Amino acid sequence: MTAHPAHGQLGYLQLPTRDLGRSIAFYEAVFGWTGEPQHGSFHAPGLGGQWSTDLAPATGAGPVLWLCVDDLHPALSRVVAHGGRVHGRPRLDQGARWLAEVDDPDGTRLGLVAPVRTARAQPLLAVRDVEVSSAWYQRVLGLVSDHGGPEYERLLADGVLVLQLHRHDVTHHHGPVVAEPDAPLGNGVLVWFGEVTDFDGVVERAAAAGAPVVRPPHRNPPEGGGNGPSHREIWFRDPDGYTVVVGSPDGEVWE
């Protein structure tokens, strides 16, 4: 902290701990804090502090710190994975934010505040071989597996779910994902990925993977056609015949 905080501002925080290493791992994973094991100190956004073995954990009593997180489900998952506990279901606060109460590994009660989001596309494709398709999308587009397995897959881009894969003949609890199990997969469906900075790399990796090209790299709109989205596109097919469209960032080929 380079300047003295304003009068009345929270300027330093001490948190109880029984295990410094465990506390550092928890707060780094859940909130992105930076812990320093030699002195037990930490740096958080706009705040510094220290873990102390001289303080008793505030288990269900005392003030509650409400800390902001970017996404609700990943934060709750990291709480549990790093020795914490989630208390009940999150609640929607006046339609403006999600609130959830958790304990850190020592039992100190914390509050999580997550933003409310509008609808986000999370397409699910019925595929013949989930693991083959997952490896293909990871190789060509650089997506990251968030589930794995032969029946279902979640694929992330920059930590955000952008694609789901489901084996076409597995019903799970929701029944079949295709209305006609014997019909060809991929017909009439375009899976669109925009704002892809590594456009040229995708073109190279798609060629190396042997992906059939539907429309080679081209400008949208064509040269001399004005500036519309002014990006490049390539259309090719994935292993199940779905047409995959990859677009460079809008404005990348401005005229």
Rank of each mutant, 00 (worst) to 15 (best):
R117S: 11
G84F: 00
L55Q: 13
S41W: 14
V113L: 11
A58T: 04
F31D: 03
R128V: 07
L20G: 14
V116F: 04
L110K: 06
P74R: 11
V102C: 03
D70N: 13
Q122R: 15
E151K: 08
L110F: 10
F31H: 12
G142A: 01
L125Y: 04
E101Y: 11
V64T: 10
G107N: 10
W66V: 09
V130I: 01
V140D: 08
V144P: 07
Q38V: 14
A100V: 04
V79E: 02
E131P: 05
A61D: 09
V130L: 00
D71T: 05
P63M: 05
Y27S: 03
Y27H: 10
P45T: 08
P150D: 08
R85K: 03
V64P: 04
S77F: 00
A58W: 00
V144A: 09
A58V: 00
R89Y: 07
G21A: 06
Q94W: 09
Q94N: 13
G107L: 07
L76H: 02
H73N: 11
T59A: 14
G148P: 09
G107H: 00
S134G: 15
T59R: 15
A44I: 07
Q122Y: 09
R109S: 12
V79S: 02
A135V: 07
C68Y: 12
L67T: 07
V69N: 05
E101C: 09
P90M: 11
C68G: 12
E36C: 13
D93L: 02
G21H: 02
V113E: 12
E101K: 10
G83M: 12
G32R: 07
V130W: 01
T34M: 09
T59Q: 13
D146S: 15
L76K: 01
L141V: 03
E151P: 00
L20I: 15
G40R: 06
L124S: 13
L112F: 00
H147Q: 14
G149T: 02
S133N: 03
D54I: 06
L55D: 12
V140E: 15
T59W: 07
A119C: 04
V64C: 10
P123I: 09
A44P: 12
L65Y: 04
A25L: 09
R78I: 00
P115I: 03
L65M: 00
G148L: 03
V86S: 04
D54Q: 11
E153P: 02
R22Y: 08
D106H: 11
